[in-house]
Design a protein around this nucleic acid. Structure first.
Length: 466
RNA sequence: GUCCCCUUCGUCUAGAGGCCUAGGACAUUACCCUUUCACGGUAGUAACACGGGUUCGAAUCCCGUAGGGGACGCCA
């Protein structure tokens, strides 16, 4: 039987990084088994669902390159089918109408809480006959859940878990307005979509018992379940806005590469021996439910940085230039010319080993593109002593003699080395002021490479301005 | 409160009763490389939550305790 999985976000906000992990695992599982990865938007909550959220979520998935099969299914649009199934359950005796008002139920729960009891629906309409129905009240449909025995779930991650049926109440399947509850809609949709494996966050773990009861009431096949442990913030609390970057789009803005996010997320709660850097094709080949751990993982931004740094080093220079250009443009207040983008691309070999995000690359690259006076930071200014400037002037005279065509990093370097040797100086004594003059900073890519890239005219201009 | 789940270095994890003197990665410390910062290389610090069992032998199996997370909506 072919594998069919789904990712089922509710469109009430952005794509959460935890949701991205769930999507990734589903996608990987489908790829591994050459099955299908479907997308279903759980938008039955009309109050909170928005089209913008749907768009944001789809955009996030696309950015992560987690392509789904077919069109995204809107759960809300299937409400007729949900009602049909609920009514069928009433007809076959596994569900019933309940006329209790929300206020009445709230009072019931308050009383249970006051008595220190578990808060559960007490089944007050379970055995009443339809003739007892008050007129003018729209009923909800509730599941007639088994009141004895136990419900067992064989989870692919958590193992076999059991709950006593006395712990579960008669949940609502269909609201008074005829729309389905989440619990009901998930089961009907998963069944109709032919979902074979339900892979989701373990906040749904205890819901699974109730969902299994619906499958059983309808006599449907129960899919396999795999519940993924939560992703926690660095402090061990549930990952949220407070931790800085809950949304997938945050990572994009901060200069992370999608393949790095995928690799990092994969390694949270899943492992393949000691392997850390795992390419996507390799991940597809290796991914299995058995490799998923049971305990929740904390999100570690530092480790993400190092994974990202790895993928940046591997990345194509042209792509990196394209990705960093908009950030440089924002700093400069103008777009880069094609010629400048070409320069940026050629600088990338020196830029990328010293950056862990695209944003860092961009920040380190800005100095190449200053056309006006170069801003020089305080540390760099201290390097430009009178003595250093004197050396720079002499060196400039020597550099003047190089033809523009032979103004290469090698040529400039050997010129500097010769000069330092003649004067009995350490290379750093002339290279550092040179760096300050060309980049305005004490930290930069190798300075002779910078000079070569900048070219004779710009290099001498900056040296003279210092 | 009731129920369900989880617990190995600071963090992510390897580990399926003897291969464990508990391995790897990130972080961290020292050194090497070096024109700066990085990259890279070498070495080091650092963990089986606690208490009982079972067993010749337990990080691994069982039972408690503690801590953490989740669920208990006409939200998803």
């Amino acid at each position: 039987m072919p594998v069919i999985v789904r990712f089922a976000p509710s469109p009430t906000g952005f794509l959460h990084i935890g949701g991205a992990r769930t999507a990734l695992f589903n996608w990987l599982f489908a790829q591994h088994h050459k099955g299908k990865f479907l997308l279903r938007i759980e938008d039955t909550d009309r109050e909170r669902s928005t089209p913008q959220s749907v768009a944001t979520i789809l955009e996030g998935l696309k950015w992560l390159e987690l392509d789904w099969d077919g069109d995204a299914v809107s759960q809300f649009e299937r409400f007729g089918r949900h009602a049909e199934v609920a009514k069928h359950m009433v007809a076959n005796g596994t569900a019933y109408y309940c006329y209790a008002s929300p206020q009445e139920l709230e009072a019931m729960r308050a009383e249970q809480k006051a008595k220190g009891l578990a808060q559960r629906y007490d089944g007050r309409w379970r055995d009443k006959s339809p003739s007892d129905a008050p007129s003018g009240v729209k009923p909800v449909i509730r599941l007639k859940a088994p009141q004895s025995g136990e419900t067992v779930v064989h989870d692919k991650v958590m193992g076999t878990i059991t709950v006593q049926n006395t712990q579960l109440d008669d949940m609502i399947l269909l609201r008074a307005d005829g729309t389905p509850t989440y619990m009901h809609a998930v089961v009907v949709d998963d069944h109709d979509m032919g979902i074979t494996h339900v892979i989701r966050g373990d906040d749904h773990m205890t819901n699974t018992f109730r969902q299994v009861q619906i499958y059983k009431a309808m006599g449907w096949n129960i899919p396999e379940f795999a519940h993924l442990p939560m992703i926690l913030g660095p402090d061990g609390a549930k990952l949220s806005k407070r931790h800085g970057a809950p949304a997938v789009s945050d990572y994009r803005e901060r200069g992370y590469l999608p393949e790095a996010i995928r690799n990092y997320l994969l390694r949270l709660c899943w492992s393949h021996g000691d392997d850390e850097i795992i390419s996507t094709p390799q991940a597809i080949d290796w991914f299995d439910l058995g490799g998923i751990g049971k305990s929740p993982a904390r999100f570690d931004f530092t480790k993400l940085d190092s994974v990202n740094a790895h993928y940046i080093k591997q990345s194509d220079d042209r792509r990196l230039a394209q990705l960093s250009e908009p950030i440089i443009a924002r700093t400069l207040g103008r777009a880069l010319s094609l010629h400048e983008i070409d320069l940026l691309t050629r600088a990338m070999a020196d830029l990328k080993p010293r950056a862990s995000t695209i944003v860092e690359i961009a920040n380190q690259a800005v100095f190449y593109f200053h056309t006006g006076p170069l801003p020089i930071d305080d540390k760099a200014k201290k390097l430009l002593t009178d003595e250093a400037k004197q050396h720079l002037r002499e060196l400039a005279t020597r550099m003047e003699k190089l033809a523009p065509d032979s103004f290469t990093s090698e040529a400039v370097e050997s010129l500097f080395r010769t000069y330092a040797e003649e004067k009995g100086l350490k290379l750093g004594a002339v290279a550092q002021p040179f760096r300050a003059a060309l980049t305005g900073s004490t930290v930069s890519p190798p300075i002779f490479g910078v000079a070569g890239l900048l070219g004779k005219i710009e290099t001498l201009k900056r040296a003279a301005a210092a």
